[in-house]
């Protein structure tokens, strides 16, 4: 049984996630392939999907144009594991608001029961690296790379908090959805990607 993992390749940090999944598969010794996906047809064949960092407004709008957004929603709804990073976390959410601009019209998948504050830590000059702990999934220390990062301001009852930084929620899990406000693909640490690959493997009968 070969795992088929895709990285949504509309815009943003696609290649780095592709490489992190490749590394994870080989380190775990799991038989699988990684591909960069754009179309509804490609997405319908996946066992797991990463929605990478980038600009959430743009990724949302362009995935709407070619029908990818609808397929992603159906697939996640039917149990496919998904890993949303930064913009990906925003896209998965039910509700998003910008810290400065306020309410924004943007397409969201409306699956992850959280409220997001976009650009929560400020602008690029305030972007930072800091050590994060994701104890609930067994990762005690991880170098969190936060780039104009969002945070989670409210969580629904089925949402598990995986990590906080200075009182702000920066990683969550809800069933087959895992999300981080920071960028594991910009580090050489594959533990989060490995954790996701394992999740995809466990989801297969």
């Amino acid at each position: 049984m070969t795992l088929n993992i895709g990285v949504l390749a509309i815009q943003g940090d696609v290649t780095e996630n592709f490489l992190s999944v490749m590394a994870s598969l080989s380190e775990l010794g799991i038989d699988g392939t990684v591909s960069q996906v754009k179309t509804a047809e490609q997405i319908s064949k996946l066992d797991g999907l990463i929605i990478p960092g980038g600009e959430s407004t743009m990724i949302g709008q362009m995935s709407l144009v070619n029908g990818a957004l609808k397929t992603i929603k159906e697939k996640i709804g039917s149990g496919m594991p998904v890993f949303g990073i930064c913009a990906g976390m925003i896209l998965l959410s039910k509700n998003s608001k910008d810290r400065v601009v306020g309410d924004v019209e943007q397409p969201l998948l409306d699956l992850l029961d959280v409220k997001i504050e976009r650009n929560s830590f400020g602008r690029q000059k305030d972007s930072f690296e800091a050590e994060i702990s994701l104890e609930p999934i067994g990762i005690s220390s991880f170098n969190g790379v936060f780039i104009r990062a969002p945070s989670v301001s409210e969580v629904g009852k089925d949402v598990q908090i995986l990590a906080k930084f200075e009182e702000k929620i920066v990683s969550v899990k809800q069933g087959n959805i895992i999300a981080t406000a920071f960028h594991p693909e910009l580090t050489r640490d594959t533990s989060l990607h490995k954790s996701f690959v394992q999740m995809v493997k466990d989801s297969k009968p």
Binding site: A9, G12, D13, G53, M58, Q124, S127, V145
Partner: peptide
Amino acid sequence: LKRGFAHMLKNG
């Protein structure tokens, strides 16, 4: 962080 910011603009 600086180069990573540019990464987030890729394909845009």
